[in-house]
Design a protein around this nucleic acid. Structure first.
Lengths: 228, 228
DNA sequence: TTCTCCTATATGGTATACAATCGTGAGCGT
DNA sequence: ACGCTCACGATTGTATACCATATAGGAGAA
């Protein structure tokens, strides 16, 4: 049974889904806010049916939650949530890296191209964070795809989407940014050497250092409220 | 953001969801078959709306898949799928066991009670497989809950549901069954000793031996078709 | 045969109506 | 002032009808 590779087929439903999802991820709609079916329907120019469908997907994604007979609200995220997510990410993604290192189909040259371009951007005086994030996502996603376990990427995507968007490279200090780029290139070297333990260890360091940087930012910013 | 703990609130939708899900898991509806909205609606005595909602959930669960403008079909599972699933289960559940061993709130006595009752059933001349499965699920779920990562149980449930149902203890030889029970009791001992490495290793053995038994059964049964 | 086109079928989406449910708050009593 | 009850309003949950649209599959022509 192959996993759904994004089922963008229903016009209105997808419009609604993407629109609402975008507003949540951008922070336009804050945590705890109600997502009213009728209101969203008129705002998006569709009927209630596709809106309901879209809300159902968002709930399944974990971006929102459902209160029976009351409606759907945007999810609220605490430091503890991010901790859990990063623990799982560490576990799954380092596993993926170790498997990718052993996979003869892993395209090392492609990964190296991505790593090099990211390094170039990071070393610039005015880094293009949007492009950097794009490349970074492609890099990590490719590794998961090379892992040979088609479920890995799907599961991680369902866990990790929120933190990935809200906590961007723009938060990194220059030092943290360059260290992250070094990790990327070291990962490629580990893949080239087909050394699964090495790749796993580098990925561990990579994610853990990233989380360390984020954690400092988060607790400084939101120490009292607890919600992010 | 707390995770949805089964959202059983909508009457008709839940009826439809449970009914269809049951028929899939029991094998009454076979892989690849169409799940027609109108047909299910009349059969279940509800309208198309909750049926559509239920089908959406099943697709999100991974039990079925969507073909644009054609409808929803029941998922088909290959040996490769089971391989992927068991790899992830091994990774996540052994991690959960190691964390549970370190958790001071882990109720060892409760787990021991479950393990002992399972052993008793397994040693009987006519094992009650249904009860055994029930206890086994409770045992594994409890460990995940004691892991301290609330997402762990949720994710595993979304991955593992199909194999758990189709591949029951009834497939085990007596030797395999007793070994599995030994693993359970050894796990409890590891928890009591608060030895995370031990717990992790036992859980690895436990799942891997179980998978080995299942794998033999599967490939013998369905060698040519590839679909399970 | 092979290609084109047509039609039957089922989904995708809209509109509307109504029932069920929950929170709120006015009003009452203490 | 405080707490309780109950009716109301808002919103979801379900049903139903209807139309648009896409697909598969077959009839018919080249």
């Amino acid at each position: 049974m192959s996993i759904r590779q994004d089922n963008l087929a229903n016009l209105s439903t997808d419009v609604a889904y993407q629109a609402i999802r975008g507003r949540i991820l951008s922070g336009e709609i804050k945590g705890g806010e109600w997502l009213r079916e009728a209101e969203l329907a008129v705002k998006l120019g569709v009927s209630r049916t596709p809106v309901r469908e879209a809300l159902g997907r968002l709930v399944a994604d974990g971006l929102a939650y459902h209160e029976p007979n009351r409606g759907v609200r945007v999810g609220e995220w605490t430091l503890e949530d991010f901790n859990e997510i990063y623990d799982l990410r560490l576990l799954l993604e380092s596993y993926g890296a170790s498997m990718a290192a052993l996979n003869p189909d892993t395209e090392v040259s492609y990964l190296r191209k991505l790593a090099d371009e990211m390094t170039q951007i990071a070393e610039s005086d005015t880094p293009q964070y949007a492009r950097l994030t794009e490349l970074n996502n492609a890099f990590h996603r490719s590794i998961l795809n090379y892992s040979g376990n088609s479920r890995l990427a799907t599961i991680l995507a369902s866990i990790v989407q929120v933190p990935l968007v809200r906590l961007t490279f723009a938060r990194y200090t220059r030092e943290e940014l360059l260290r992250s780029m070094n990790h990327h290139r070291e990962l490629v070297d580990a893949f080239e050497a087909k050394d699964s333990k090495w790749a796993e260890a580098v990925m561990r360091s990579h994610l853990r250092s990233g989380w360390s940087a984020m954690q400092g930012f988060i607790s400084a910013q939101h120490s009292n409220e607890g919600i992010i």
